[in-house]
C-alpha cells in the first residue's frame, strides 16, 4: 500500500513538473466580457421567441384578410319596421282570419 502511495505521489509530482499548454489567460478578457454581455442580454430580454412572434403575427394577418375578403351577411337594423313587425307580430288565430275574411267579403261589391 505504501508502494501504491509512493507511486501516486510520484505521479502527482510529475503533474506539477509538466506544464500544460494553457492559453486561458490570453482568452480571459474576451471570455469574461462575452459571458457578462450574454448574461445581461438574457436578463433584459422580455420578448417571446422570434418564431412565436412570427406565428402570432401571421395568425392575426390571416384574421384581418379573412375579415376583409369574406362578405358579411346583411343585417337589418334593429329599428327596421319589417324586422320588428315580423319578429313581434303574433301569428293570427283562426277566429281572426275568419273575421277578416268576413270583412273583406262584406266590402266587396259583387255583381
Amino acid at each position: 500500500m505504501n508502494h501504491d502511495d509512493h507511486f501516486e505521489n510520484k505521479l502527482q509530482s510529475l503533474t506539477r513538473e509538466l506544464r500544460r499548454p494553457d492559453a486561458t489567460a490570453q482568452w480571459k478578457e474576451e471570455i469574461l466580457a462575452r459571458a457578462l454581455r450574454e448574461a445581461a442580454t438574457a436578463k433584459v430580454r422580455v420578448l417571446p421567441p422570434r418564431w412565436l412572434m412570427g406565428a402570432w403575427a401571421g395568425a392575426w394577418a390571416a384574421v384581418l384578410v379573412l375579415k376583409v375578403a369574406v362578405p358579411q351577411p346583411s343585417i337589418q337594423p334593429a329599428s327596421s319596421p319589417f324586422t320588428v313587425t315580423s319578429a313581434a307580430k303574433p301569428e293570427p288565430t283562426t277566429e281572426t282570419l275568419l273575421a277578416y275574411n268576413r270583412r273583406l267579403t262584406l266590402n266587396i261589391d259583387l255583381p
Binding site: K10, L14, E17, L18, R19, R20, P21
Partner: peptide, 18 residues
C-alpha cells in the same frame, strides 16, 4: 500536448518518466 505538456522537468530522469 495537453497531457504531455511542455517538458519542464528539472532533470533528465524526470523528463523521461514524464
Amino acid at each position: 500536448e495537453l497531457e504531455g505538456g511542455q517538458q519542464h522537468a528539472s532533470d533528465p530522469d524526470t523528463t523521461a518518466l514524464s
